[in-house]
Amino acid sequence: MPSPARTPFTLGYAVVLVVTGLFSRLADPDLVHDVLTHSSTDVVNLSDRPVLVLFASAVWVAGGVLTPYILAFLLVVGALERRLGGWRTAGVFLLGHVLATLMTELPVAASVAAGQLPDSSLRRLDYGISYGLLACTGALAGLLWPRLRWTLLGGITLVLVLDLVEFTDPLTDCGHLLALTTGVLCWPYIRRAVQRREPGPSGRAPRSA
């Protein structure tokens, strides 16, 4: 479980998510919708203020303060931070969030420009921590025992593919798969980082599982 000494990034971020979750639950619905609209990583907002909106979209959690996402965040990101450190964990989270966002929204912009999608596609509500959380999940899997690693990745991938097949929100579902893949691609980096942080008894870094 997270602790202030070992996982300051996780706990600090969780406090922000609780505050924004309470705001979305208790504030005036019109105000909440307006704030979320300005925080959404849709094509229009990304074109106008890309850096601000990429950060702003990641301080909200879909479903509000009672969502299971916050518990999953504490468990997954906290476990990764204990092994990898706060700055590197934040980097994995941000990498997954940014890459998945851009790789899903840029094709939308290109399709609208080519006349394949209507202009309304440039505006949509797209916010939350799911991309960063899935990137951290994929990264954390690289530090687990092989059987647990592939069970975790297989189960999550199956759920994400089933969501994509339902075609309820294909853009977000594709982003989820991309974010998970981003975390998996970080395995060589995080294993080297963990080995430097956790040398074996002889002073040499232990071999990765």
Results as ranks from 00 to 15, higher is better:
Gly115Arg: 07
Arg123Cys: 00
Ala62Ile: 12
Val43Phe: 00
Leu140Met: 04
Thr104Gly: 03
Pro50Arg: 03
Ala113Glu: 14
Ala141Phe: 07
Ala139Val: 08
Ala135Phe: 02
Leu75Arg: 03
Ala58Glu: 11
Leu117Tyr: 06
Pro29Tyr: 13
Leu143Val: 09
Ala110Tyr: 14
Pro68Val: 11
Gly115Asn: 05
Gly138Ser: 04
Val32Met: 14
Ala56Cys: 07
Arg49Ile: 09
Leu106Tyr: 10
Ala139Asp: 09
Leu31Pro: 12
Leu31His: 02
Val77Gly: 00
Arg83Lys: 14
Leu31Met: 06
Gln116Ala: 10
Val51Thr: 07
Leu106Ser: 07
Thr137Cys: 04
Ala72Tyr: 05
Leu125Asp: 11
His33Thr: 10
Gly128Asp: 11
Arg88Asp: 08
Tyr127Cys: 08
Gly115Val: 03
Pro146Ala: 00
Phe93Thr: 05
Gly115Met: 06
Ser40Glu: 01
Trp87Leu: 13
Pro50His: 06
Pro118Trp: 03
Arg83Gly: 00
Thr37Gln: 08
Leu54Ile: 04
Asp42Gln: 12
Leu75His: 05
Asp126Gln: 01
Thr104Trp: 12
Val108Asp: 07
Thr67His: 04
Leu75Cys: 02
Leu140Trp: 12
Val59Leu: 11
Ala100Gln: 08
Ala62Gln: 15
Ala27Glu: 12
Trp87Asp: 03
Phe93Arg: 06
Leu102Cys: 11
Val76Thr: 01
Thr101Phe: 08
Asp119Ala: 12
Pro29Glu: 05
Thr37Tyr: 09
Thr41Cys: 04
Tyr127Asp: 07
Leu95Gln: 09
Gly142Ser: 08
Val44Leu: 12
Leu95Thr: 14
His38Val: 05
Gln116Met: 14
Ser121Cys: 05
Pro118Thr: 01
Val108Asn: 02
Arg88Pro: 04
Gly96Cys: 05
Leu94Ala: 08
Gly128Val: 08
Thr137Ser: 09
Ala110Trp: 15
Thr37Leu: 09
Ala27His: 14
Trp87Glu: 08
Ala90Arg: 09
Asp42Leu: 09
Ala72Asp: 08
Asp126Trp: 15
Ala114Pro: 02
Leu75Asp: 00
Asp126Leu: 01
His38Tyr: 14
Pro29Cys: 04
Ala100Glu: 10
Ser47Met: 01
Phe93Ile: 06
Thr104Lys: 06
Ala113Met: 14
Asp28Glu: 11
Leu143Glu: 10
Ser47Asp: 03
Ser47Cys: 04
His97Asp: 01
Leu36Asn: 01
Leu102Thr: 03
Val112Lys: 12
Ala27Pro: 13
Ala114Val: 01
Leu102Arg: 06
Phe93Leu: 13
Thr137Asn: 08
Ala56Arg: 10
Ala27Trp: 14
Gly85Trp: 11
Leu99Trp: 15
Leu143Trp: 03
